[in-house]
């Protein structure tokens, strides 16, 4: 099934804002970030179809996930 992955700030290593991937049925974000070599501690905010989401929710064909890394300085 097709999932659109949007990575933000320094997670965007190849400079592409949106990347489409084909994953097997029943995949969740936790497994996707492992496949993409994104560390779990680098996931500050996760949006699924633009809404706040949890890392272990099963995704559906056509979903969009957006991943933002943590910012904590002043």
């Amino acid at each position: 099934m097709g999932i659109e992955v949007r990575l933000f700030s320094n997670l965007r290593e190849d400079k592409r804002k949106k990347v489409f991937f084909e994953f097997e049925e029943g995949i969740n974000v936790f497994r996707i970030i492992r496949i993409l070599n994104v560390k779990e501690e680098d996931v500050e905010i996760l949006l699924i179809n633009g809404r706040y989401g949890e890392i272990d929710i099963e995704l559906n064909d056509g979903d969009t996930i957006s991943i933002f890394p943590p910012i904590g300085g002043n």
């Binding site: 700030s9 320094n10 501690e41 996931v43 500050e44 905010i45 706040y52 890394p69 943590p70 910012i71 904590g72 300085g73 002043n74």
Partner: peptide
């Protein structure tokens, strides 16, 4: 919701902070 890891570090350790962002 913003910080799932409550005692973690942010990107500032890697990128520092310039004059204009603050």
């Amino acid at each position: 919701k913003i910080y799932p890891i409550k005692d973690g570090d942010g990107l500032e350790n890697e990128f520092g902070n310039p004059s204009f962002t603050p």
